[in-house]
Structures are given as structure tokens and as C-alpha cells.
């Protein structure tokens, strides 16, 4: 019976060929450093799940952002856990993605034929930092407000068009409700869309080319 069901699905979804291409393939022997990529993916998924749960209660306005987080922390069942995981997940993700980049660099894995995998990887690293930067403002507390004030001043130092960049980031000359809604939107729509798409390409290339090997003296 189960076999019949599987065959029916396989005929339509191509499960066997997915298995053959994705899972049942040979790869060089590697060490534990090679788990950093999948760890990054796992943390991204955790951030996605907890982030989606947080948007249920979070309100991205200066009047309510802080209170809605207080409510998540004190009022919502296991709200503190979800926010705690999201908070620490962000920290860990930056760390793990950065280590993943270092591993790729030190093992020379960005060289032929994986140049494009590296390019997408850099996009993912920068997007992760962008997620950290935009997400930091959302609790609308003293720490986040002032960190973002200073952070958005940095592009403003560029001669000629710097102030324009700062104004674009802030949605005006000062941090305001517009900045918050802008950062919120970037944090939950723009960057996740970029990250998801880029992860797709990244994974496709990894499966297509295969993971790199640990270089030896001949390489």
C-alpha cells in the first residue's frame, strides 16, 4: 500500500531522481569545518520561523514597538523563548556565516570552478549583516535607537552624496517612525527575499559542482 502511494507520488514528483541527484551522490571526505554552511542555513531557518512568530505581536511604530516587545516578553506564552532564540540566533548567525566565509577562504574553495558560489556567498554575508543592522532597531529601545542613529550617520560622511544616503536610510533627516517602518520592511521582506533567492543559487551550485575537498600539498 505504502509502496503504491510512493510510486504514485514518485511518478508525479520525481522523488527518486531528486534522491539520486541531491542525496545519493559521492563527495570527497571532509572535516567538521564543512558543517558551517549547513549550520548557517539552519540558523537562517530558525530566524525565519521565530521571526514570523514575532510579527504576530510586533507593531512597527514608535508608539507601540517597545510595548509590543514588552508584551511578547511578559504576556505571550513562550514569547520570551521565541524572542530569546531570535536575538541569540542573530548573533550566532553572524558568527557562523563569517566562520563559513573564513573556511571557504582558507581552503581555497572560492577558486575554479566555484567563483559564482563565492559571489553569492558574499551577498549572503552582507545580507546577514544587513539583517543584523535593521533588526537591531526594531525593539525601539535606547540601545537600538542610538546604535541606529550612529550607524546611519556613517554613510553621511561620504563627500557630496553622503547626506542623501543617510536620508534614504532614515526616511528623513532624523530617525523617526519612517525609519522604523523602513527598517522593518527591509528586515522582513527585502532582505529575506534576497537571502532566500541567493541561498537557492548557492545550494544549486553546491549540488551541481559538489563540495570542495581539503587541499593537500599537490594543490
Amino acid at each position: 500500500m505504502l509502496k503504491k502511494l510512493f510510486n504514485w507520488l514518485d511518478e508525479r514528483l520525481g522523488l527518486t531522481s531528486i534522491y539520486n541527484v541531491v542525496l545519493d551522490r559521492k563527495v570527497p571526505k571532509v572535516n567538521w569545518f564543512f558543517t558551517l554552511g549547513s549550520a548557517s542555513l539552519f540558523l537562517f531557518l530558525m530566524q525565519g520561523v521565530t521571526g514570523i512568530l514575532l510579527t504576530v505581536y510586533y507593531v512597527p511604530t514608535p508608539d507601540h514597538a517597545y510595548d509590543s516587545i514588552q508584551y511578547i516578553m511578559n504576556g505571550v506564552t513562550f514569547g520570551w523563548l521565541i524572542r530569546g532564540i531570535h536575538h541569540w540566533g542573530a548573533t550566532l548567525m553572524v558568527l557562523v556565516v563569517f566562520l563559513h566565509m573564513l573556511r571557504t577562504f582558507y581552503f581555497g574553495a572560492y577558486k575554479y570552478p566555484r567563483e559564482i558560489t563565492w559571489l553569492t556567498g558574499v551577498i549572503l554575508l552582507l545580507s546577514t549583516l544587513g539583517m543584523g543592522f535593521t533588526g537591531y532597531l526594531l525593539p525601539w529601545n535606547q540601545r537600538s535607537y542610538w546604535a541606529t542613529t550612529v550607524g546611519t550617520e556613517i554613510p553621511g560622511t561620504v563627500p557630496f552624496f553622503g547626506q542623501f544616503l543617510t536620508n534614504v536610510l532614515r526616511g528623513g533627516s532624523d530617525l523617526s517612525a519612517l525609519t522604523l517602518s523602513r527598517f522593518f520592511s527591509v528586515h522582513i521582506w527585502f532582505l529575506p527575499a534576497v537571502i532566500l533567492g541567493t541561498i537557492g543559487i548557492h545550494l544549486y551550485l553546491i549540488i551541481r559542482i559538489g563540495i570542495s575537498h581539503i587541499p593537500d600539498k599537490d594543490d
Binding site: A39, F42, L43, M46, P62, Y66, M73, W80, L81, R83, G84, I85, H87, W88, G89, L92, V96, P139, W140, N141, Q142, R143, S144, Y145
Partner: peptide, 21 residues
């Protein structure tokens, strides 16, 4: 990592900060 996250969220948690001023 999952276990680590749960431990961090439970035993260290998120620091309280006053509202943006």
C-alpha cells in the same frame, strides 16, 4: 546550535533596555 540557542534564550535571555528616548 539549537540546544545552544535555547540555553542562551533561557539562561541569559535578552537584556532589558528602557524605551527609546
Amino acid at each position: 546550535l539549537f540546544i545552544l540557542l535555547i540555553l542562551l534564550a533561557t539562561f541569559i535571555g535578552v537584556e532589558n533596555e528602557p524605551k527609546a528616548d
